[in-house]
Each structure stands twice: as structure tokens, then as C-alpha cells.
Nucleic acid binder design. Structure first.
Length: 271
DNA sequence: AAAAGCCCCTGGATGC
DNA sequence: TGCATCCAGGGGCTTT
């Protein structure tokens, strides 16, 4: 479910409302990807300062320590008045005096991890190897092209790896490569500087557009206010195997790369 | 160092 | 209706 736009949309939908809230209690459901790393009861009484995002992680800053949240493949957050008891897939309930922050995650690839600070070994292990933020000033051509040049793997998989640039997942990798006219199977090191610039711009535009329309809701994504996204209506290649390219009419192809589906137009995207 | 595979887990869609 | 198989928006870890 959640790539950078969905995570950011989620953050924007509750960050201001939860800022300043006092934690009343914390309840965990079934195990997520990693243990919390602290006694949940010890967080009672702490104050939430704000919510930041790094890649696909949300960082909930407390007056002491922080919580790292990851939505994995099927996670979604909600924040508001607690109106229903925790369901079988609600694996985090953070009760505050401003509302209940709840993580719903059927597949449990998500995570809730406590760290004293970002230098904490636990936090560093998760955040330390992350690449540049694609929507930041720091995402510039020279370093991006230099990074691509030292990778022989297919460009799609380099984008997904997240150590060069973060936040680009399976949907937006296919979408950005289509907009850049680049075949997903092309070795990253063979992308010329002008094409790298096209790709850089395409990544920014696709992510910014998805963010602006609330992300993509394929199955069940919704932000912390329960609102769904609409980028799926604008997808040009993802999940469109066999359908005509919206640009040239050729049949969209689907292939497997690293056990993930990739979609592209054989005519518009050059090897 | 980089790349390729393997898992973690549940549920929905599809096929027989 | 029941059951088996495949697929899904991620990414850390282990092995080449």
C-alpha cells in the first residue's frame, strides 16, 4: 500500500492534530515486524511533539524518545475519537488525550519501534542507509547520476532499493520510468546524464502529483482521517497489462523483477 | 560492495 | 460450496 505519497498524506492528515497530545496508554496487538523495544506502559504521560517522515517511515517525536512507524505493505493509520474496540488487525492503539492513534495492518509487515533518539542503534539501523528525499532540494542530478553509474542492476530495482533515493515503491517506480521514457530493465549504469535528469524530474512530478491527490487507493488505503486517494485514476502503466498505452496505443507489458511486477510500454520506453 | 533470493503474513481473486 | 494456487503498495537479512 504505502509509498512516499501515501505515507506523507497519512502524516499530513494527523500530525497537527496529535501535536501536543499526552499519551494515556499504549496497547499492542499481534507481533509486528520488530518488537517495540520498550515497555509500552512506560510511555504513559509522555507528550507528542510532532510527526516527521523519513522515506516511508513516520517519526513520532515525544518529549523523550520517539516512535518509528512503518506501514509495511498493508498498514494504515487512523487518528480520532475511539469509537470502536480494537479489531483483529489493529496492532497498535496509542491512546492520547486528543484521540486514538491506531495502526491497522492485516499482513503485519509494518513496525512500531521505540528509540531514545535517531542516533539510537535501533533507529540508525532502519534509517541510516536511506537515500535522499526525492522531493527535497538535495535530490539533484550530479549525485543521482553518479549513484546510477555505479549500479549494474536494472534501474527499476535500483529505485526500489531506496539507498539512492527513498520513497519510490512498486507503483511509482513503474510510473516514473514510463514518464521518463526509460525501460525498467535497463542497467542503471547505462543511463545517460540527460536521461537521468528526465528520470529525476519524472520521479519528483509523479510523487508530487500523487501526494496532491491523496495518494493511491488500490485496495484499502486511507489517510488517518479515513479519506482515500485518487492517483490510481491517473496511472499510465501500473496494473494495466494488456491494455493500450495511453500515449501510443501499444499493449502494456508486465514482467517480474525481483519477485515484483513491473509494467511498461514497449514502444514509449527505450532500452 | 553489489546483486539476487528468501522470508515475514493475511486476504482476495481465480481456477478446478 | 470447497479447496488449492497465485498475487498484493515493503524491505531486512543471508547468501553469492
Amino acid at each position: 500500500m504505502p509509498e512516499l505519497p501515501e505515507v506523507e498524506v497519512t502524516r499530513l492528515s494527523f500530525a497537527e492534530r496529535i501535536a501536543g497530545a499526552r499519551i494515556v496508554s499504549m496497547r499492542l496487538g499481534k507481533p509486528l515486524r520488530w518488537p517495540l523495544g520498550v515497555d509500552p506502559a512506560s510511555l504513559a504521560g509522555r507528550r507528542v511533539l510532532g510527526v516527521r517522515r523519513r522515506g516511508k517511515y513516520l517519526l513520532v517525536d515525544l518529549d523523550r524518545g520517539l516512535l518509528l512507524l512503518h506501514l509495511g505493505m498493508s498498514g494504515a493509520l487512523s487518528f480520532g475519537p475511539a469509537r470502536t474496540p480494537a479489531g483483529k488487525h489493529d496492532h497498535l492503539d496509542l491512546e492520547t488525550d486528543c484521540g486514538l492513534l491506531r495502526l491497522h495492518d492485516p499482513r503485519r509487515f509494518g513496525a512500531v519501534v521505540y528509540a531514545e533518539d535517531e542516533a539510537d542503534p535501533v533507529a540508525n539501523k532502519l534509517l541510516g542507509g536511506l537515500g535522499v528525499e526525492p522531493l527535497s532540494e538535495g535530490f539533484e542530478l550530479i549525485a543521482f547520476h553518479r549513484g546510477l553509474r555505479q549500479r549494474r542492476a536494472p534501474i527499476k530495482q535500483v529505485l526500489l532499493a531506496g539507498d539512492l533515493v527513498v520513497g519510490v515503491g512498486n507503483i511509482y517506480a513503474s510510473e516514473a520510468l514510463f514518464r521518463a521514457g526509460i525501460r525498467p530493465t535497463l542497467a542503471a549504469c547505462r543511463i545517460s546524464k540527460p536521461r537521468a535528469e528526465r528520470l529525476r524530474v519524472a520521479i519528483r512530478e509523479v510523487l508530487a502529483r500523487a501526494l496532491a491527490v491523496g495518494g493511491s487507493t488500490l485496495r484499502d488505503f486511507s489517510n488517518a482521517q479515513g479519506e482515500s486517494g485518487y492517483f490510481q485514476l491517473e496511472m499510465l502503466v501500473y496494473d494495466r497489462a494488456g491494455q493500450p498505452c495511453r500515449q501510443c496505443g501499444a499493449s502494456i507489458r508486465q514482467i517480474r523483477q525481483g519477485q515484483r511486477s513491473t509494467f511498461y510500454c514497449p514502444a514509449c520506453q527505450k532500452p
